[in-house]
Structure formats: structure tokens, C-alpha cells
Design a protein around this nucleic acid. Structure first.
Lengths: 135, 135
DNA sequence: TTGGGTGCAAACTATTTGCATTCGA
DNA sequence: TCGAATGCAAATAGTTTGCACCCAA
């Protein structure tokens, strides 16, 4: 786990002023590679005796995502996860169990992508493979 | 555009009882290949003088999606689109303009997908390419 | 000081639930 | 007649906005 000092450094390096609330959110989210919803983060903060408001959690996650510290993963209607693994990767999502599993982008070959319309540039390529248990 | 009779037939063929509200939603959504949000559909129904409740629109879209008449596309946090193009395809999404454009899945080659964990079966493979305008 | 940055209460929006009603057998 | 299906008001859950406060320059 990152010490408090390390988290502050991480935030500063990302151009984010390391305030108390942001460090608390970062401690929970960036501790290891994982997928957490805003709600889960909020719950954990409360449990840790670090009550940060809902709005601040959302705003902070949005900021972290904009600066590349976490990645938003859209999985279900109105169910966003924040993924602290920022290496290029894609996702398996088991619709029966809710399990979300990363796999490296390097492993997959995606070829013959059409040219983006209106000569826009590609910002991200997200592959989500939805699974269902057999039987 | 489908006549009313055709829409009723379409719903029956999908195993859906063709009630008034469902036919009204279907007329709007299935008229042509397009991406619509629940809100847009609701607005158009009101405009057409066919006021179906919000809850019924959501439930009906959920039913249509379950029966394969439309496909849910997750684009933004809390922004679901219902795509009446059910042929296999993927999406370009321009984050600057909000434009959502289909491209055929047949065009793209995706290789070396890892085996699904726990021997679950693949339900869908969704590729979303986010774009940003140059400059 | 002071102007952008920050945190949060409150407002807002999207979606789901629970139940009275209706439908088809 | 009766259980399942249906439609919707109300409740819930998720997210954003607007503003008072704070802090670095």
C-alpha cells in the first residue's frame, strides 16, 4: 500500500493539489488494481472514519479520470466503475455474477478498424466482452 | 415506415404481446436504424400525442432489448442509447459532438481473445471507439 | 488581497420497484 | 375465474450544479 506521502506525490505528479479529501479517496482507489463504484468508495471512506461527501467523491473521481489516474469503465446502465489499472486493457463482464475481469490489450489483435469519420482522432478503444454462465 | 399491422406482427414474432403502448414505442424506435435515448423516445411520444409513462417506456425498452429488437449501447455514464440496428456492429462515439456512428462487425478482425474465465460463454462483444476532433 | 480552486448541500436526472388493473385461457 | 402480464405513480439511486469558503500567489 502507498504511504500517505507517496499518494501526495502521485497526485502532485498528476497535476492535482493533494488535499485531505483527495488523498483519502486516492488511498482507497489507488491502493491496488481494482474496480470500484463511487458507492463502494464512499462506503469504504465512511468505514475508515473519513467521511467525504458524495459530491466530492464524484468530482474527485472525475478529476482522477481526466488526469489518467483511473479509468472509467461503463458496464451497466448507470453503473460506472473506476479502474485503477491504467495499463491498456479490456474487460470481461459476467452478467450473472457481476464479476469484472481485466485482460491485457496486448494479447488481443484488433485489425481493419475503419477510419474515424471526419478525420477525428481516436481517443480510446474499449472492448467489453459480456459473459453468461453456462447452463 | 412500418404500418401498424407490421409492427404488431414484429412484436408477436418476438414473443411480445402487442399492446397499445408497446406499438407506440415500437413505431418510434424501430422506424429506421437509429440511436435514441429513453428521454428522446418519451419526448417524441408526447409530441405524437401518445403519452406513455416514463416507467413504461423504460420497461418496454428493456423488454425489446431482452428479445433482441433493439440493442443497448452504453456510451456515457448514465447515458444509455437504444440502437434499432441489431445486425452485428460496433460504435464510434465522438466525445466532442456526441455523434454515435455504427460500423459493421464484419469489417473488423478481433483475434486472440482470451478464453472466458470459469468457462462461461460469450454473450456479446462490444467495441466502442471514442473519438475527439482534431485541433 | 483576490481569483481560481475546492468541498459539499441541495437540486436534478435517470432508472427501478411495487402494486392496482387488465388480459387471455 | 384466476394467475400471469401489464402500465404507471411513486420511490430510489446516481450524478451534477451552484455557491460559500479557502488557499496560494
Amino acid at each position: 500500500m502507498d504511504s500517505e506521502g507517496d499518494v501526495a506525490k502521485l497526485l502532485r505528479e498528476a497535476g492535482i493539489r493533494p488535499t485531505l479529501q483527495r488523498m483519502q479517496v486516492a488511498e482507497v482507489v489507488l491502493r491496488k488494481d481494482q474496480h470500484l463504484s463511487a458507492e463502494q468508495i464512499l462506503t469504504e471512506l465512511d468505514y475508515n472514519g473519513a467521511p467525504v461527501s458524495k459530491a466530492t467523491v464524484y468530482n474527485t473521481l472525475g478529476l482522477f479520470a481526466a488526469r489518467g489516474l483511473v479509468r472509467e469503465v461503463l458496464i451497466d446502465a448507470a453503473r460506472v466503475f473506476y479502474d485503477s489499472n491504467t495499463r491498456p486493457h479490456h474487460h470481461f463482464y459476467n452478467t450473472d455474477t457481476g464479476a469484472l475481469v481485466d485482460f491485457p490489450a496486448s494479447q488481443v489483435v484488433i485489425e481493419n478498424l475503419p477510419a474515424p469519420p471526419n478525420s477525428a482522432r481516436i481517443e480510446s478503444v474499449d472492448l467489453v466482452i459480456r459473459l453468461r454462465n453456462k447452463g
